[in-house]
Design a protein around this nucleic acid. Structure first.
Lengths: 208, 208
DNA sequence: TAGATTGTTAATCGATTAACAATC
DNA sequence: TAGATTGTTAATCGATTAACAATC
C-alpha cells in the first residue's frame, strides 16, 4: 500500500491525520469532508486531498471521507497493523518515561525488554517488563526476533552500543541521543528525537 | 538580532547548527568552512550559507567561519543568553524525565517549580526542585515572574490547566500533550512534541 | 436532477541548489 | 599575488494552493 517516492513532508503529516481521525471516531463522527478536516487541523482542503491521493482515492465524491475508513487506511499505510519487536536501551529517567508513557502496541511496536548498565536498576520492573543487563542483549535479540531498538542513553555510550546492536541485525532505531547513527551505518532507518532542539525553537519563537 | 519573516524551516535548522558547532568547539576546532560543516551535518554548503545569511554575515571570505564565534551568534539568535522562568506541570514519568534529562539553563530557560495533582508525589524532590500542589500555581506564577510552562500531563486535563495558566499570563508553552493550545488561544507560542507521531514515522520508514 | 465534494491538473509560491563576483 | 571561501544573485526544483471536471 505505501508508495515509493512520497515526500517526507507528506509522511510526517500522516500521523497527525491519524491522530485527528482517531479523535473524531472516538467522538462518534462518521464522515468528514476535506474542508472540515482542514478547519479542524489548521490545514487546507487542497493539501489534505493531495496528501491522501499519494496513496489512493479514499474518499467519495459528493460525500467526503468515512472517518473510521480513512483512519484505518492511514493506519495501514503507516504499518501500524504489523507489530515489530523492540527493545529499549536505558532505564534512566528518559527510558522509564518512554516505556511507560507510550502505547507501543497501538503504534506498530511491541516493547519486550529493557536493558541497562547500572546494576542498581537491573532486575526492577517497568510496565511489567523486566530490566535486564546489557550483557544479555545479543542473546536476547537473537532469541526474540527483535528488529528495532529505542535508544535512551547518554551520547557517549551510543556508538559502542550501536556497533553491538547493528551486529545482531537491528536496522531500525528510535534515537533520543544526539549520536548520528546513519553517518556510520547507511542501511539503517533512524528516527531521531532531539528534545533540546525543540526547546530551543520555542525559545526563538518567544522573541518574535 | 533575529529578523522577521525567516522561514520556519530555517529556524528549525538553527538548533542543529548550534549543536554541531558546540561539538566542534568542544573538540577544539577553531574554524570551519560551509563545505566541511555541510559534509559533517549531511547538508549542503549552499544551504548553510543561505541560512546564516538570513541573520547576518558571520563568516570571512577565504577563511570560513569561526566555530566559537558562529556558535555564539546562533545562540544569541535563538535567545539562549536570556533566561526565562518556567514551571513544569506534571510530575509523572514523562515530567520527571523532562525535569532531569534536559539542561534548561543552557537552552534559555530556568525550571523553578514542578506542579502535580497526585498528592502522593507532592512534597517530593526532582533535581533539587520541590513538587508542589496544583492549587499553588496561580500564586507561584505571579510571585516568580513565570512566563513559560512545560506541559507533561494527560490530554484530558490540559484544557482546564491552560485556562488557568493563560489566566495568570503565561503565553509560551512546551507541550507534550496532544491538546491544541493555539486553537483556543491565538496569542500564545506553543511548541508541540508529539512522540507518538515520531514513532509512527519510524514505523512507516521501516516498510520502505 | 441539483448540490456537494472528491481526484487531479494547472498555476503559484517558496525553498534549495548552482554559479560567480567580491574579498579576505 | 594566488587560492580559498564567503555573500548573494540567478536558476532549478519541489511543495502548496487554486481551479475545475468527474461523479457520487
Amino acid at each position: 500500500m505505501p508508495k515509493e517516492g512520497v515526500s517526507m513532508l507528506v509522511i510526517r503529516r500522516l500521523p497527525r491525520y491519524y491522530r485527528y481521525l482517531s479523535e473524531l471516531e472516538a467522538e462518534g463522527v462518521e464522515k468528514i469532508s476535506s474542508t472540515k478536516l482542514a478547519a479542524l487541523m489548521n490545514s487546507t482542503a487542497s493539501q489534505i486531498r493531495q496528501d491522501l491521493n499519494c496513496f489512493g482515492g479514499f474518499g467519495q465524491q459528493g460525500y467526503g471521507y468515512s472517518v473510521s475508513g480513512l483512519r484505518e487506511e492511514i493506519g495501514k499505510i503507516l504499518g501500524l497493523n504489523e507489530i515489530h519487536h523492540t527493545i529499549l536501551i536505558g532505564a534512566g529517567n528518559l527510558g522509564r518515561a518512554i516505556a511507560t508513557h507510550l502505547n507501543f502496541e497501538q503504534l506498530g511496536f511491541r516493547l519486550t525488554a529493557i536493558f541497562e548498565k547500572d546494576t542498581k536498576l537491573i532486575g526492577t520492573m517497568l510496565r511489567g517488563i523486566k530490566v535486564l543487563s546489557d550483557d544479555e542483549i545479543e542473546a536476547y535479540v537473537k532469541a526474540n526476533d527483535i528488529d528495532t531498538a529505542v535508544l535512551a542513553m547518554p551520547k557517549e555510550a551510543v556508538e559502542k552500543m550501536i556497533d553491538k546492536l547493528y551486529g545482531c541485525g537491528i536496522r531500525s532505531y528510535w534515537n533520543f541521543s544526539h549520536y548520528d547513527i546513519s553517518k556510520k551505518y547507511h542501511d539503517v532507518v533512524a528516527e531521531n528525537v532531539h528534545l533540546s532542539d525543540s526547546l530551543m525553537t520555542l525559545r526563538y519563537m518567544m522573541n518574535q
